[in-house]
Amino acid sequence: MNAVAADLVERPPTPSRRWTGTRIAGTILVALWALAIAGLALYLVQSWNPELFDRYAGRYWSGLIVTLQLVFLSIILGAVLSIPIAWGRMTKRRIPSALAYAYVYFFRGTPLIAQTFLIYYGLGSFRPQLEAVGLWSFFRDAWNCALFAFTLNTAAYQAEILRGALESVGRGQWEGAASLGLSRLHTLRLIIVPQALIVALRPYGNEIILMIKGSAIVAIITVYDLMGETRRAYSRSFDFQTYLYAALIYLAIVETLRNVIEWIERRLTRHLKR
């Protein structure tokens, strides 16, 4: 009965949206974007060059693989390295704490590109010493140096993420677990880490994205990652579309990753939704 009555109520018509100044400006801006994107697509279609594609598609693919390998490995190795550093940042002991602080400050305070140069070119100064310990063959290769630099760099950032996440879990959680008789290791594994990982997920995702974007600089130390292949293709063909294709690939990777992380976060926080 009520439902029927509700249907019969005469509602006022929804007010038509007026063409305010903001709406006009917004429409113009969206139109400009659409025009720019359409122009870009048109340019790419018009200047489509099968010969160029045949020559460089495979190289772009191998460059992409190099980029992804470099980022994946450095993230994993950095995660391992970040655990002792995060411990150092949280401990009350003076010496480990100071060392961890200095490490994190150095790697977060200087540009990744300068760190990479320091390792790739700078370690050349120590060639005799490195040869003596048999590490020279490792540091002679640009890819290894890039991996080493990226691992050290991301470890500093990941240590801070880990520390922030672990500290975000309240003291009461530790105390409650202790009163139930759980050991410290058990508390950490069963109670603290699962809660901390939810907090850490988004920063970790951002760190992966930052690494993918940052990894483009290895092109400068002659590693042929996606950016390196792009630079090579441009210097040979002088065709600007080489850069545009690289931009599209990077954009696609970053956007996919961002959406995947958002999806995972939604899944993991289902129980927190109200």
Partner: peptide, 20 residues
């Protein structure tokens, strides 16, 4: 439409590597 225009801007320029 304003929001869309702003979001396109940030999506593009936060997704591209700085060097690129």
């Amino acid at each position: 439409s304003m929001r869309l225009a702003g979001n396109i801007y940030t999506t593009i320029f936060r997704g591209l590597p700085e060097l690129l």
